[in-house]
Lab assay of single mutants.
Amino acid sequence: MDETGKELVLALYDYQEKSPREVTMKKGDILTLLNSTNKDWWKVEVNDRQGFVPAAYVKKL
């Protein structure tokens, strides 16, 4: 969790967005987890953008 109590995830792999609903991340990025109710796609925030990334590409910290 960060200082505001939000849950964080670590990008395990690079991911290039394939639609406007997704976000690009690089391996090693720390992202804010917004929603993990879907087992396949998690909603995150990175670089002031919100979108989805494959759940298998990130790990909760």
Rank of each mutant, 00 (worst) to 15 (best):
60 K>H: 08
25 M>R: 00
10 L>A: 06
29 D>Q: 15
52 F>I: 06
24 T>S: 15
59 K>C: 15
23 V>C: 09
57 Y>W: 06
4 T>K: 12
32 T>Y: 12
17 E>A: 15
33 L>S: 02
51 G>H: 02
29 D>H: 05
7 E>C: 15
55 A>Q: 05
47 N>C: 13
40 D>W: 15
38 N>Y: 08
19 S>R: 08
12 L>V: 07
30 I>P: 01
60 K>L: 13
34 L>D: 01
28 G>V: 01
61 L>C: 12
10 L>Q: 10
55 A>C: 07
54 P>K: 03
36 S>R: 08
9 V>C: 14
22 E>D: 05
6 K>M: 10
9 V>N: 01
18 K>H: 08
21 R>K: 11
6 K>Y: 13
23 V>L: 15
39 K>A: 13
51 G>K: 02
61 L>F: 09
30 I>H: 04
26 K>W: 11
3 E>R: 11
34 L>I: 14
1 M>C: 15
18 K>M: 11
16 Q>Y: 14
28 G>W: 06
44 V>A: 01
40 D>V: 15
54 P>A: 02
19 S>Y: 06
13 Y>Q: 12
31 L>M: 14
2 D>Y: 09
41 W>E: 04
13 Y>D: 06
3 E>K: 12
14 D>S: 08
59 K>T: 13
4 T>D: 13
59 K>G: 08
47 N>P: 10
43 K>E: 13
61 L>K: 04
57 Y>R: 06
21 R>D: 11
55 A>E: 03
35 N>D: 15
50 Q>Y: 07
50 Q>I: 14
32 T>C: 10
56 A>G: 10
42 W>R: 01
59 K>Y: 10
30 I>F: 06
51 G>D: 01
21 R>H: 12
19 S>F: 06
32 T>L: 14
45 E>Y: 07
6 K>W: 11
6 K>N: 10
39 K>N: 10
11 A>M: 02
33 L>T: 01
50 Q>P: 05
44 V>W: 01
22 E>P: 05
41 W>N: 01
51 G>W: 04
50 Q>L: 06
26 K>I: 07
31 L>R: 01
30 I>A: 03
52 F>N: 03
24 T>N: 06
2 D>T: 14
48 D>L: 10
35 N>V: 08
29 D>S: 07
14 D>G: 06
18 K>Y: 05
52 F>E: 03
23 V>F: 13
49 R>G: 04
15 Y>Q: 00
34 L>V: 12
3 E>T: 14
16 Q>R: 11
6 K>L: 11
55 A>T: 05
48 D>I: 05
27 K>V: 07
36 S>P: 05
50 Q>V: 15
20 P>L: 09
59 K>L: 13
48 D>C: 13
17 E>K: 13
34 L>A: 03
1 M>Y: 14
28 G>C: 10
22 E>A: 06
2 D>F: 12
49 R>T: 06
13 Y>K: 12
34 L>G: 01
14 D>W: 04
57 Y>G: 05
40 D>N: 13
43 K>T: 07
8 L>W: 14
2 D>G: 14
50 Q>E: 09
5 G>E: 13
1 M>F: 13
46 V>E: 03
29 D>E: 11
2 D>S: 14
33 L>Q: 00
28 G>H: 05
7 E>P: 10
8 L>A: 06
17 E>W: 06
56 A>V: 09
37 T>F: 09
60 K>R: 14
2 D>Q: 14
39 K>Q: 11
10 L>F: 09
27 K>E: 06
12 L>M: 09
20 P>Y: 08
18 K>V: 08
9 V>H: 03
26 K>E: 05
16 Q>K: 13
11 A>I: 02
20 P>S: 11
45 E>N: 06
37 T>G: 09
13 Y>N: 07
18 K>E: 07
31 L>Y: 09
7 E>V: 15
34 L>T: 04
49 R>L: 06
12 L>Y: 04
38 N>D: 15
4 T>P: 14
53 V>D: 01
8 L>F: 15
10 L>D: 01
31 L>A: 07
24 T>R: 05
44 V>D: 00
11 A>V: 09
59 K>A: 11
45 E>Q: 14
36 S>E: 13
52 F>Q: 03
6 K>Q: 10
29 D>C: 07
22 E>V: 05
11 A>R: 01
53 V>N: 01
49 R>M: 07
5 G>L: 12
31 L>W: 03
43 K>I: 13
19 S>N: 12
31 L>H: 03
14 D>L: 02
46 V>C: 11
14 D>I: 02
19 S>K: 07
35 N>S: 12
18 K>F: 05
58 V>Y: 01
45 E>L: 10
25 M>H: 00
40 D>Y: 15
52 F>V: 06
35 N>T: 07
4 T>L: 13
36 S>K: 07
30 I>D: 01
61 L>S: 04
29 D>M: 15
60 K>C: 10
59 K>R: 14
48 D>K: 10
49 R>Q: 07
58 V>K: 00
28 G>E: 02
55 A>I: 03
49 R>V: 07
46 V>K: 15
30 I>G: 01
12 L>P: 00
51 G>P: 00
24 T>W: 04
1 M>A: 13
18 K>Q: 14
56 A>W: 09
57 Y>L: 12
18 K>A: 10
9 V>A: 11
19 S>W: 06
34 L>H: 05
25 M>A: 02
6 K>I: 12
4 T>F: 12
17 E>I: 06
39 K>P: 15
45 E>W: 07
54 P>L: 04
47 N>Y: 13
55 A>M: 05
7 E>M: 13
32 T>R: 13
22 E>I: 04
55 A>S: 13
57 Y>N: 05
11 A>K: 01
28 G>A: 03
51 G>R: 02
60 K>Q: 08
16 Q>W: 14
59 K>E: 10
40 D>T: 14
4 T>I: 12
38 N>L: 08
47 N>E: 12
21 R>M: 13
1 M>W: 13
36 S>Q: 10
52 F>G: 01
38 N>A: 08
52 F>M: 08
53 V>C: 03
15 Y>L: 01
46 V>I: 15
35 N>G: 06
60 K>Y: 09
59 K>Q: 14
48 D>T: 10
51 G>Y: 04
28 G>T: 02
9 V>F: 06
41 W>Y: 07
2 D>R: 09
57 Y>H: 06
7 E>Y: 11
50 Q>A: 11
48 D>H: 12
3 E>W: 09
29 D>L: 05
35 N>Q: 10
22 E>R: 04
46 V>N: 15
52 F>W: 15
34 L>E: 02
58 V>Q: 00
28 G>I: 01
39 K>G: 09
39 K>F: 08
